[in-house]
Design a protein around this nucleic acid. Sequence first.
DNA 1: ACTGCTTTGTGATTGAGATCACAGATGCCT
DNA 2: AGGCATCTGTGATCTCAATCACAAAGCAGT
Lengths: 228, 228
Amino acid sequence: MKFNSEDFFKICNGIPFLACLSPRELSDIESVVIVKKFYKNQIIVLEEEEAAYFYFIISGKVKVIHYNEAGKELMLAIHKRYDYFGEMSILDGKTSPATIVAMDDCTIGFITRSNFVKLVMSNEKSLQKIIALLCSRLRDAWSMLNILGFAEAGEKVRAALKIFSQKFGTPEKNGIIINIKLTHKDLANFAAVSRETASRIISSLMKAGEIEMIDNKYFLLKHSFFNK
Amino acid sequence: MKFNSEDFFKICNGIPFLACLSPRELSDIESVVIVKKFYKNQIIVLEEEEAAYFYFIISGKVKVIHYNEAGKELMLAIHKRYDYFGEMSILDGKTSPATIVAMDDCTIGFITRSNFVKLVMSNEKSLQKIIALLCSRLRDAWSMLNILGFAEAGEKVRAALKIFSQKFGTPEKNGIIINIKLTHKDLANFAAVSRETASRIISSLMKAGEIEMIDNKYFLLKHSFFNK
DNA sequence: ACTGCTTTGTGATTGAGATCACAGATGCCT
DNA sequence: AGGCATCTGTGATCTCAATCACAAAGCAGT
């Protein structure tokens, strides 16, 4: 996997607090980017680790997870190519709030904290974009709280599918396809239900014709899925 | 309840993104503050409402809640005197992510969005403080997610008590007293368990000597409570 | 194609906690 | 003081989903 200037500008374009910088400033940043490969299931950031880098994904997917005392895994998010992560600890200097694991073989670019602070956080426009980003993360977290707090298993799984369809979906004649491979286990960890329960709910949604599998790999959420 | 300059400066002092402004700038802000009374159980902000104001509490307490489809109430936070809220919608211009209800009779100060943007968000130092604030809110939300996701009822209630003790606690010889009146229902709504379950758990914690009630009103969390 | 790992499907059992149902307490109002 | 409303305590049920337990299906590597 090669990483060139063109890729870099494309990535920056998708990151609001970088997109607002001048080409000149972006070049400065590009010159301090480090690129590294990670293999499937490899841990990229460990929870409670000191803040070190701001990361963006050049290829592959990662998951953001948290293990509870019983060793169960709660999945907080999945990030794909051109997404970024690790900004929290960079911004407040505290330890990482979660563990990041590669879901595939990944190529990750990263920028040290000091470079990030020097090159990005001195720009007022960028600061405002960062605020907007944090607000949206916070809104996501709160809507997740509402789901995990009281919803029953069926609702949790539906909500999980909806969230993934917003992030990874492409519209189709019949509905929306979620363009990443999600196992029942992934879905269960995200929805905070057991794998078996997730499997049963998925089966029943398929029987009801609300969803189907494409190539035995991708979820297609039919229109009927969205009309509750 | 009177509200004077002295109160105002005291409040600002507790709000990092205002504390960093000059006395001059604070006076400008003070001159646009509106003060209003709300009565117990009155709704101050309704979820999905358009962003209108930044609020701070001059006296009283408010709760941040969300109702699910079944009409159950999930409590996301309690704010007390000198705390503030409503910054989310001011910052990103979107609707309020939750409903705010007065828990007592309250006196609330507020600032319109345009004044807030003009007077606060033009200052780089303030922007950085706001970022720090959002990060900490996000960390709180995430730790809450971990609890609601997988913990069993007993753990949820203990976690709720711990969180309240951090925000409202004063240390004592025997432990920490939570200085606000919390009903079992409040605790249950915060921990996302039923009122009855919360009551039973509290009873058993009292039997175990880990907590006790002061004046039949305030929780005292004994040292043993904290050693798991 | 054979071996072994991961994923999926589905029954059976179990259990934690929601719900229902009161009764007694505690406040709060006039 | 007396009356109403809100809280609290605790049993008895009931239900949803976790857990246990396999078998079958996919898939990946040699």
